[in-house]
Design a protein around this nucleic acid. Structure first.
Lengths: 383, 383
DNA sequence: CCCACTTTCGCAACGCTGTTGCCAAAGTGC
DNA sequence: GCACTTTGGCAACAGCGTTGCGAAAGTGGG
């Protein structure tokens, strides 16, 4: 590691604390305490940030007997990122500011099966339009794209978008980057959702958690040590096809007794409590294996009966924890990141409103996709 | 991060490369390439290491037309660590040098249920004796202790040593540290085994893997991103009680359908192939969830029929990978770290020989325990 | 054998990092 | 109004890796 890397590391540390502090801001001395750096170093770093327009002074605190502390805050408009969520039948694009707040949102129907060229054309159109609305062109850091199915996050190549084999092997990242002349990052939708939750306020005091999605299928995203765990081949988080019943009923994937198959079957016959119990068993396995701090549930099937799922999963975890003599890991519904919505509703709200998203149980996948570009600024690059 | 942290980071990087290179050594320029630092920086760092006696010149390579490269190597005797493995009925203690090579080994029967004070007394005796044999007293970095059952790695407090509730809550680390006047680290036995494998040659090109142990019970240790993943409460790696059969036969832990219960039952009725298949199913879940690079199997039940287990587990993984259209993760038997045994067999070989260990399927837990002290030197601290 | 050439590696000067010492600024409280 | 406390910037500093340059130690052609 070189000297310059140290500088950007510490700058990222400070930026992350500024982001976490939100609009109320944070004082220099508190930054010093939290980072372990001296107040002088913080002064230098924040002076650079203020020169670049990334930070600004925001009033002062009450005095405690001496000169009152000056409060610093992140300037949200100093940078933007576009996030695109490609779902099977829909495209959602958002423009986020530095804090992750949504400045503009657009949603349109899309047939993912219409072929790579059509999809690219649509993404280029939507992302380009949003990026153009971000003021200065240089202020857009890049475009994050989240879509279902296994893919290679590092190379940005699609592998097996579930149900759309014609997209296999398509180098989405490079094609989009060339067309948009912007940095592009692609990732699985569940990873993007998990990343969005990781930088959201909901997981503030938590360093590792699992986000489990139950919508049309069952999937998951893992955050370990503050960063999304993608594994060697970006294949981590395949939660839906965890086998919890040896030689159980066959699943579409070819295995038998997968969580997804069992849960879908239970829901189909109206037994939501049983679906929650099965899900809870798989979640219990995950918690035992990884010892995460928190479990977040999402997806529209969960959203249809949130209490049932939270209670059912928590019951399994509590029972296991009770026998093991420890405390159970908390289970919550992922709130979808609302409440941090930035201003500018009238500016670009072409498509649906935020409320509708929660109704579908899509917990800010597009916002999480934008975080693929924003998170590295705050030292949240993956391991 | 301060400036001094940068220095120790880069020093650790260099030390790790020196360790990996083994007795053949590595040249300064190669160190520069592998670390990304300039040759000058490497010269400075290695000069410090040579002053401290940690590194030494070890001949030179053939010339390629100019001055031949000087080869540097780690000086194994520059530091030692004691590793202690507390098993249910046996205590194994080793003295390891900087490279992890075993300098002395001692094994004696021990009743873990004899109470905390007795156990402490025995560990103090064995570890103290080995530490005294390491030449200069200051050359011993500390003592690592590995034992079964959940515990708090950070505080060094035992939680629920399986089968020995009288040890619950005992602050083993602090008590031992005071008695030995040495730094002490405690960890789960499976974590120690995984750490030992992580620094061994077997996983050289691999950044994340799972070690799964099938002995008297089933357990596991995870290495993600080169460091042992312990989770928030050091509870990660609980592999034995992954449920793979909903409402299956009851397990001692109180759950139903645990891997351990199913595998033990299969072995008891002589159906080792079925045990391997069940284990493979759970391993398949783990691989899907974490996308590790490698699966290593160990433990004396595996050692009794290694081919059957490797083939059985690999078959499940291959079948899943085939349907998913990817390559299967390789499965191997953990070799137990033999072959890196340092010299000095006659010096301290009071107890059993190394070969016996492999026969029991205990893959260097004591050596891994010693690595709890050694690994941080090489930048392998956990996240 | 000698000399040109290549490659390695250390010394010295440098730019940049965070740190330390000191002082001005800006409050509180008697 | 003055002593005191606390904040935060300026200047000098030690230490990091980098750059420039030259000595050391080989190879290979004449």
């Amino acid at each position: 590691m070189q000297l310059g890397a140290l500088r950007s590391h510490n700058t990222a540390l400070v930026l992350d604390l500024l982001r976490t502090a939100g609009p109320e801001g944070i004082s220099r001395l508190e930054l010093a305490e939290r980072t372990g750096l001296t107040p002088q170093a913080i002064s230098k770093i924040t002076a650079r940030l203020r020169e670049n327009g990334l930070a600004a002074e925001a009033g002062r605190r009450a005095s405690t007997g001496g000169k009152p502390r000056t409060v610093l805050r992140l300037v949200p408009e100093a940078g933007h990122a576009v996030g695109v969520h490609l779902d099977r039948d829909e495209l959602t694009a958002v423009l986020c500011d530095l804090t992750g707040g949504v400045v503009a949102r657009h949603r349109t129907p899309l047939d993912l099966g219409a072929g790579a060229e059509t999809v690219v054309e649509r993404v280029v159109g939507e992302a380009g339009e949003l990026a153009a609305g971000a003021g200065r062109p240089g202020a857009v850091l890049g475009v994050g794209v989240a879509l279902p199915g296994p893919l290679d996050h590092r190379r940005g190549v699609l592998h097996r978008v579930t149900g759309f084999p014609e997209l296999n092997g398509f180098p989405l990242r490079d094609v989009l980057a060339r067309r948009l002349s912007l940095p592009v990052v692609v990732d699985k939708d569940t990873n993007a959702a998990a990343l969005g939750l990781a930088v959201g306020g909901e997981t503030a005091s938590v360093t590792s958690f699992a986000y489990l999605h139950f919508g049309a299928g069952v999937g998951g995203g893992l955050v370990l040590g503050g960063a999304v765990h993608r594994g060697a081949r970006t294949g981590a988080g395949e939660f839906g096809h965890q086998v919890v019943q040896l030689d159980g009923p066959p699943c579409e994937c070819g295995n038998r007794g997968c969580v997804e198959a069992l849960c879908l079957a239970a829901v189909a016959r109206g037994d939501v409590a049983e679906a929650a119990r099965v899900l809870g068993t798989a979640v219990g396995n995950l918690v035992a294996l990884l010892d995460v701090d928190l479990v977040l549930l999402g997806g529209r099937t969960v959203a249809a009966a949130p209490e049932t799922f939270v209670r059912g999963v928590a019951a399994v975890l509590h029972e296991r924890a009770r026998r093991a003599g420890g405390d159970a890991v908390p289970v919550r519904v992922a709130s979808g990141g609302e409440g941090r919505e930035g201003g500018g509703d009238g500016e670009g709200g072409v498509g649906g409103a935020g409320g509708e998203r929660a109704g579908r149980g899509e917990h800010g996948v597009a916002e999480g996709a934008a975080q693929l570009l924003l998170a590295p600024l705050f030292g949240r690059a993956d391991g």
